[in-house]
Design a protein around this nucleic acid. Structure first.
Lengths: 174, 174
DNA sequence: TTGCTCCTCACGTCACGTGAGGTGGC
DNA sequence: TTGCTCCTCACGTCACGTGAGGTGGC
């Protein structure tokens, strides 16, 4: 006779798994002690081993329960064959995900917001990245110093009107 | 402005999915009508499209939410690369399941109960297969008539004591 | 008496689906 | 007025994990 903890350890499962199997009627201990402790015998342990193996095939517990109460071998082969098909479908779905991820890594534009970049979105973005006013000013100064032409293009790209672009570049050079 | 039903249809998702995304704060409609209806604008629709793509990679919604609030491109590539690893691990696990199923189909004994067969288990099994008392009697009669020696061996195999084996075989011949 | 194990609720997880009961807009 | 769509709860799913609060056995 085994207690729930001992059986869990020998089977390599958790205690709460066995409690759950008892609750759903998948594995009920063959008796209880006077104090209400679950007492599992060798037959229970053998049943648990079959459950463990079938569970590793990915079958849902409800299906396993049915298989264990059916006459041996009557349904099992059929169920396992269809499980093989389901596993193949799951693998195919995961491969599809892999392909998508690779595509996204190759063309990151697919990930980005399709809405056009503008001044408000850009500043929101920099603020989210931890830029305060002073940091933004330094950023413009660096940009203007190291690549003035690109700075101009970038400000135009954000849709900022010409006169304000000129103003920004002026204080960036100070 | 789109209602929840229209947005769901154009995105190919269910209404309850959008309700759920609102609840967890993943996609909140930019406004509500006077009657409390959710009103989604084009920005909301664009965000939903990004969510849909990322969801197809298998990322959990909590992760998607984080990615959408982070500056574009800052984390995404790293997260997607690790997702690629997780997908590979999942595929490997499914392949393991496939191998196990094939093994079980090849050696069905692995599926069967290792506990010794005895009289109680045997009758339980026959009852489960739909045998009533009369059917069991006929079964013994057939067994005795067509293969008396194997009948004897089988009864011994079940652990039934000699005198009762003799008794069963006697009424089987009547 | 002290640990360790056991017990039974009850609630949380993940991403929704499914009613129930009620209201808004054409 | 009739449909259709919308609203907000609340509960169920699957296979457990994690406490809380309490008891048994060496």
């Amino acid at each position: 006779m085994l207690t729930i903890g001992r059986l869990a350890r020998t089977a390599g499962l958790s205690r709460s798994t066995l409690l759950y199997y008892d609750r759903i009627g998948l594995l009920r201990p063959s008796r209880r002690t006077a104090a209400g402790y679950r007492a599992y015998d060798q037959g229970d342990a053998a049943r648990l081993e079959r459950i463990r193996v079938l569970r590793e095939t990915g079958l849902p517990l409800a299906q396993i329960k049915r298989l264990l109460s059916a006459p041996p071998g009557s349904e099992t082969a059929r169920v396992l064959e269809s499980q093989l098909g389901r596993l193949a479908a799951q693998i195919a779905a995961l491969r599809g995900r892999q392909r998508l991820v690779v595509k996204l890594l190759g063309k990151p534009r697919l990930l980005e917001d399709a809405s056009p970049m503008n001044r408000a979105r850009w500043t929101t973005l920099l603020r989210a990245a931890g830029f305060d006013d002073a940091a933004m000013r330094r950023w413009h100064e660096d940009f203007e110093r190291t690549a003035p032409r690109e700075h101009q293009e970038f400000l135009e790209f954000l849709g900022i009107p010409d006169d304000e672009v000129a103003r920004i570049r002026r204080w960036s050079r100070r």
